[in-house]
């Protein structure tokens, strides 16, 4: 059943995975944005946070 829908054969050198590249670039952006949000907004925004013994300003 799995092969029945195949309409043409594409070998390695003809195959240009541009869609995959687009998806992983999107993933890169999403990861970066979510990471920055989680670290700087969710984490650093919800103090108090454990700190070293810094002199109080």
């Amino acid at each position: 059943m799995s092969r029945s829908g195949v309409a043409r054969t594409i070998d390695h050198d003809e195959f240009d995975p541009i869609g995959t590249l687009a998806l992983v670039v999107l993933y890169f952006v999403v990861l970066t944005v979510m990471w920055l949000f989680t670290y700087f907004v969710e984490f650093l925004g919800h103090g108090p946070t454990v700190v070293g013994l810094l002199p109080l300003g």
């Binding site: 829908g5 594409i10 195959f15 869609g19 998806l23």
Partner: peptide, 19 residues
């Protein structure tokens, strides 16, 4: 994902995301 894309294009899929 590239392997899936390969399958999709062999099945006639096209476009950057259309596949």
């Amino acid at each position: 994902v590239a392997s899936m894309e390969h399958g999709a294009r062999q099945r006639g899929g096209a476009g950057t995301f259309g596949w």
